[in-house]
Design a protein around this nucleic acid. Structure first.
Length: 416
RNA sequence: GUGGACGUAGCUCAGCUGGUAGAGCACCCGGUUGUGGUCCGGGAUGUCGCGGGUUCGAGCCCCGUCGUUCACCCCA
């Protein structure tokens, strides 16, 4: 009796061949610049104590208030599938004392994250991010370096059609001064109740509203960037100076709003121009109060999260993914049982030397096996049968040109 | 949570005003008993998302339901 077909849960992103190799390429491209800059892997659980996020990310955020996958485990604890990466990293840093050694502590991570949102192009309930965090250093140079690392990842993929928005949210003193004026300004506006209550939670959010009437109303709103105190202003100016030195172009966007409450100071966002409504491919910033908020010492931090799914979408939109990167070096077609043994031996030897080798098992007719070899995209093919075993020599065929050459089986490694 | 669009072979889709299902690609076999890509011939494949209704008759109409997708809110 046939059972009901089971489908993947709504809105998850998953990658099957052949697209999975493109996904792998994109993720690796985003990670490698961080490794090159001395960041080390931190591998964390995908679920955490719910309080980590309510306290760390902030209860006023949409992420926490309505997008978390929260459940009770068998011991009655409230558990949440991580909606973002930074809070978990901070928790682990405190827990393992990574803030006690040489600073900054530089970490990278990669993995799945979860938000219970309505799915849409580029927005999934389970999605993938690569991120880094640099903890315990105020130097504006590291702000620029963090941004440069993200930028390098996108460039490594081959993306060009994106822009970088930056701004500064200043320190708590600057924000408090601005907030007074902003709240007073918003009070003069004629807004609907839902918007008013949103503003009450975090007035900055109104800058992010897409409705034309709200945008219009906000045109003359006081901008936080104009309220930065001397220290914040100097810090931000330094960051920009370093970005200029790195020749990383950016757009100053004082109306940029980030969705998580912990951001302070430098914040940034990478926006791709060929994506749909969900065009942010990465973003981050400083979070100088987060660690203390989570019960650790008062250390500053800066980091980013890059969307692997969206970066892949962007890469596909730009047409920069090449499929040829992932093919085998050699495809072996054995004819007969003895040949299979030989093929297994040869393949294992070559694989140990770093070659990618496939074997056509299953006793297909030679013609069919050759078709298989062709479709696999393998660079070279050899046929092993009785005569090859007795002579110890095979015809090495280069699939692209069709040219063949006689090669001793023992010399295959150098011939490939 | 709100709104729109769509659900037909593995994939992309066609199916005129209701008359009992098709194409392309992919797949398998063959065209020299040991060498692919082109070409030619042949072949398999669907409870037309599901349930109900109207009708002599429904892939086409109606209702419901599930799913997918795009957008809003928000975000990677």
């Amino acid at each position: 009796m046939a059972g009901q077909k089971i489908q993947a849960p709504k809105g998850v992103s998953e990658y099957a061949p052949p697209r999975s190799s493109a996904f792998e390429f994109v993720r690796e491209s985003l990670i490698s610049p961080a490794r090159s800059a001395g960041y080390q892997l931190i591998e964390l659980p995908v679920f955490e104590d719910t309080e980590l996020f309510t306290r760390g990310v902030g209860e006023s955020t949409d992420v926490v208030s309505k997008e978390m996958y929260t459940f009770e485990d068998r011991g009655g604890r409230s558990i949440t599938l991580r909606p973002e990466g930074t809070a978990g990293v901070m928790r682990a840093v405190i827990e393992h004392g990574l803030d006690r050694g040489q600073l900054p502590s530089k970490l990278w991570y990669s993995g799945a994250f979860f938000r219970a949102e309505r799915p849409q192009a580029g927005r999934y309930r389970q999605f993938y991010q690569v991120g880094i965090e640099a903890i315990g250093l105020d130097d504006p140079a590291i702000d620029a370096e963090v941004i440069a690392i993200a930028d390098a990842g996108f460039k490594k993929i081959g993306l060009t059609k994106y822009r970088l928005d930056i701004t500064s949210l200043g320190d708590s003193e600057s924000r408090a001064a601005h907030r007074v004026d902003l709240v007073a300004f918003i009070a003069t506006l004629d807004l609907d109740e839902a918007t008013k209550s949103r503003a009450a939670l975090n007035p900055l959010r109104l800058f992010d509203d897409k409705r034309p009437e709200v945008r219009e109303a906000m045109t003359n709103a006081p901008l936080l960037i104009d309220y930065l105190n001397e220290e914040s202003r100097t810090h931000f100016a330094q960051v920009r100076k370093y970005l200029d030195a790195l020749q990383i172009s950016y757009t100053l966007n004082p109306r940029m709003v980030r969705g998580l409450d912990y951001y302070t100071g430098t914040t940034f966002e990478f926006v791709h121009e060929l994506l749909g409504a969900q065009s942010g491919i990465g973003g981050g910033g400083r979070y100088d109060g987060l660690m203390a908020e989570l019960g650790g010492q008062s250390l500053s931090g800066i980091g980013f999260g890059l969307g692997v799914d969206r970066a892949l979408l962007a890469a596909e939109a730009e047409g920069v993914i090449s499929a040829e990167t992932f093919v085998s070096d050699l495809f072996i077609i054995p004819l007969g049982d003895l040949a299979k043994e030989k093929a297994l031996q040869v393949a294992s030897l070559l694989r140990n030397q770093g070659k990618t080798v496939e074997i056509a098992f299953g006793d297909r007719a030679l013609k069919g096996a050759m078709k298989g070899a062709d479709k696999s995209g393998a660079r070279y093919v050899i046929v092993i049968g009785d005569s090859e075993i007795s002579s110890g020599t095979v015809e090495l065929k280069e699939m692209k040109t069709g040219a063949t050459s006689s090669v001793k089986i023992d010399s295959l490694l150098t011939a490939l």
